[in-house]
Amino acid sequence: MDSSVISFYAISAFLLTFGVMAVTTRKIFRAAIWLLFSLIGIAALYFWMDFQFLAAVQIIVYIGGIVVLIIFSIFLTQMSGKDMPQALTSRKLIALALSLGGFAFIAHFLAHANYHESSGLVDASMPAIGRKLLSVETGGYALPFELISVLLLASMIGCIVIALKKAQEKP
C-alpha cells in the first residue's frame, strides 16, 4: 500500500465521518458546519486526483458560497439554536435498514462492474476547460453553459417574487 492509497482512504474517512455527522446531529447550525467539512473533503479528493481547477471551484463555490448562504438562511429563521425533534426509533430503524440495504446492493454491482479504460488523458487544465465551455464544436459545452444562465435567471426571479413583501396598495 503506497502513500497515495493511504491518503485516499484518509480523505474518504474524513469525508464520510463528517457526512454522517451532518445528517445525524440535531442542531441545524452544526449540521451546516459538518457539511462544510465534508465539502472540504471532496475538494481534497479533487486535489488527490490532480484536478486543481475543479478543487478550486469546489472551495470557492461550495465552501465559500453555498455553505455561507445556508448559514445565513439558518440565522434568518428563528429556530437556529434549538434542537430539532427526535425522529421515532422505528422510523430510524427503517431508514437505517433501507439505506444500508441500498448501499450494499449498489456497492455489490459497483465492485463487480467492468469499467472501460478512459479514452486518452483528460486535459483538466484551466485554459482547456475555458475553451470547452465556450466551444460549439463536438465536445464543447457552450449550450449547457448558456442554459444554466437562463436557469439562474429564472430561479432568481422565482426567489425574489416569493420573498418580496406585499407592496402597499395604491390609493
Binding site: 442554459l147 426571479i157 422565482g158
Partner: peptide
C-alpha cells in the same frame, strides 16, 4: 439541465 429549468421555476409558480 433542461429538466431542472423545466421544474425549478414551476415550483415558484
Amino acid at each position: 439541465l433542461s429538466l431542472e429549468l423545466a421544474s425549478i421555476p414551476l415550483a415558484a409558480m
